[in-house]
Structure formats: C-alpha cells, structure tokens
Amino acid sequence: MMVHGCARRACLAVFAMAMAPQDPVEPPPGIEAPDAVAEGGHLVVQVNSGVKEIGLCVPGVGQWTVPVPKDGRVEWRLPPNVRGGHRIIVTDLDIPHPSSKTVDVVGSD
C-alpha cells in the first residue's frame, strides 16, 4: 500500500523524535565520568586521552565546549538551569563519530 507523502513524512518525523536523544554507543576512550551528579554541584570528568577539549551537552538547555587542563581533570560547575532530571552528555567531540557517556542530574532536595 502506498503511503501518502505527507503521512509518510509525519511518520518519519515521529520516528526521529522517538530515537532522540541518542543513547551513547560507547563511552569516550580515556574519559571517565560519574553516573550521576547533584543539581548545582560540580561534574568532575577525568580526561586521560589526548583530547584538548570535551563537549558537555544538556538536551533542552545547551552545549558547552570545555577545555581540558594539563592534569586532565575537568571540573564543570552545573549552570543554574541544569536541574534534577536533566541528562548531561559528556563527549569527546571526535567527528564524525563522537563517543559519549550520559550523566544523570539528581535533585538536591
């Protein structure tokens, strides 16, 4: 049965929404992060690979490119609009296939 063009595009759009945000396929090699961080706290990411910057992405809020210090320890203060229930995606920004790990933000109350 042929699907009308508009209905087909709507189906594809719904499918795309169901697939996003992408769950990480593998964590970034050489990058370690906790599974969860408290609202308003500091996220500590240990970068032991050669990357000089990582990406920290919060769907619905925004994304940041954060430089990696010489000791590899990235400490990122969660912005006030990153609240419990949000997810932080830590990525090595390695185009075309960036690796990532998801960190859950838990409420502080």
Binding site: V51, K52, E53, V61, G62, Q63, W64, T65, V66, P67, V68, P69, K70, P79, N81
Partner: peptide, 14 residues
Amino acid sequence: ANPSGQRTGVGPRG
C-alpha cells in the same frame, strides 16, 4: 548557541 551565547570552542592546550 548555549545560554552564554556560545557555540564554538578550541582547547588552549592544542
């Protein structure tokens, strides 16, 4: 752009 009006970056150590 993120809440700070930024969407690009480069690491200084590079």
